[in-house]
Design a protein around this nucleic acid. Structure first.
Lengths: 170, 170
DNA sequence: ATTTAATTGACAGTATACTGACAATATGGC
DNA sequence: GCCATATTGTCAGTATACTGTCAATTAAAT
């Protein structure tokens, strides 16, 4: 005979679930980023895109999405906004009429170098409440976990993809 | 004379930032939840709301938002969807004409008890790649961090608020 | 070479997440 | 009782995040 007593539901079903904690931390992380970087009119996602275009000038949207593991559809809108702010430009590729290549503008390069200290401050504040040793431990475990769960993500990180647009001499 | 060399930007500015790692883990957590709970037509947020209404029958939307630390505006839409699925009902409060009280329907209670194993499976899968000891460490640090950063969140958790709608006899 | 596959960017649709504003309603100071 | 204030739910607007689809274009198969 199966157990007939219904399991009592408590808030622990929410509060102790790792998924809930990750959601909360993500919300906190975004709030701190926005607060520290208020002066720059850049969201965390836009910042990540800008950094990537900076380190991969001439990357296209699909590869950009793979390099930062953001959804390709979402990224389309992000790129539009960065373009509207004159932080990037899109140039059609010569060899492939489908592709539009992404480059930083001067304004984009400027905002990127100016925002860095604020970004660093925001990132530091997220872990500040922990003891230094615990910060290192958490960051290490988190890095491992994201890497090991990469394939579970809808948009797995494919850092290598970024290189494909170069030196593909065949 | 200030350092005239521009700091070289690398992808580490993204990949090693805790904010980026929290975003990735949140995306992975949602993907695993949706995958495991596909049969139940419930998102992680809707699940958390349902659990809370189950443990706090007659709670109102504002207090619900405080108990799970979700934005009040967002929650309005979540509640609408749960109502459209017939998982909850809203009843006007007798003493306060502004307030609408939330209750589970039978279907809501049923889906909640049925979905539990799948939710547990999803939560377990998130941490699965780590060694058991590391899972405990990460969960402990994450719990601490969310708690200590509570006020940095736009919608801080106010678990006590949930009790205010009871026993306020004055 | 021609048909088939895959890729790219775009779009529509749904679901969080947050800001700021608003009308209806309650509450507190006086 | 009256008025300033606060609360509640709602709405409009913006920004992620994902699904699925589509036309244009390219690459692959034969």
């Amino acid at each position: 005979m199966p157990n007939s007593k219904p399991t009592p539901v408590t808030m622990d079903a929410v509060y102790t679930a790792p998924g809930y904690l990750f959601r909360r931390m993500q919300q906190i992380a975004v709030a701190l980023f926005i607060e520290e970087c208020r002066a720059f009119d850049l969201t965390p996602v836009q910042y990540a895109a800008l950094v990537t275009i900076s380190t991969h000038p001439g990357i296209d949207a699909t590869r950009l999405s793979a390099v930062i593991a953001f959804d390709r559809s979402t990224l389309g809108n992000v790129i539009e906004r960065l373009q509207a702010k004159d932080f990037i430009v899109r140039k059609p590729a010569a060899e492939d009429k489908r592709v539009k290549l992404l480059y930083l503008t001067k304004a984009g390069a400027a905002v990127l170098s100016e925002i860095m200290p604020s970004v660093d401050k925001a990132q530091a504040r997220m872990l500040q409440p922990l003891k230094p040793a615990d910060r290192k431990t958490l960051l290490s475990l988190l890095t491992q976990l994201v890497d090991l769960n990469n394939e579970a993500s809808r948009v797995p990180l494919r850092a290598e993809d970024a290189l494909e647009h170069l030196g593909r001499s065949g």
